[in-house]
Amino acid sequence: MTTRLKFIPFVAALVLLVAVGCAKAPQEAIDAAKAELDKATQAQADVWAGSEYQAAKQAMDAAQAEIDAQSQKWIKNYDKATELVNTAKAESTKAADAAVANKEQTRKDAEAAIADADAALQTAQASLKAAPRTKDSKADLELFDNDLKALATTLDDAKAAQGSGDYKKALEQASSAKDKAASINQQLEAAKAKRAGARPVRK
């Protein structure tokens, strides 16, 4: 074997080492995954799709950790990092989609709850107007009147929350106002049944 031929394996090994060692991080895929995660963040996935958003963030963290680990090595291999980045991108897309869907569903639920609460409040207000005012019922009716006024304010708050996109708050406030208005209406109906016939005595 000539001297030249003796060097061939060394040269080949050196070329291989340089090729592998100079492997580059999948920057394009990383940027794409980050963009998807940003999209999820903008869609408030942390609020509307908490578990999906967390999965996306974890995938991104795992990908970043793998990239960092490879970048410290002499012989770099970003194959696994690329897989992890692709997973992060897919999870981020899932989180963004879930956030949009969940937010829209809660918006619709809140809208329905506000309409229900509005109807329950109007029914209770009508019952209050129609309730007989006797000595026995006067104190109750005054309390109910105050309660219904406060409920109307709560309902206004719920509508304001709905307007500002805080659908969870709107849904909870409207549901609560609806239940309370329905309870007052029930009590008014019961009071109607117990109506006292005699005229109150002036004291």
């Binding site: 409920l151 709560t154 849904l171 909870e172 549901s175 609560s176 239940d179 309370k180």
Partner: peptide
Amino acid sequence: EITLGEGRAS
């Protein structure tokens, strides 16, 4: 009481 209702809704 309204807060209680909100809690129940949650």
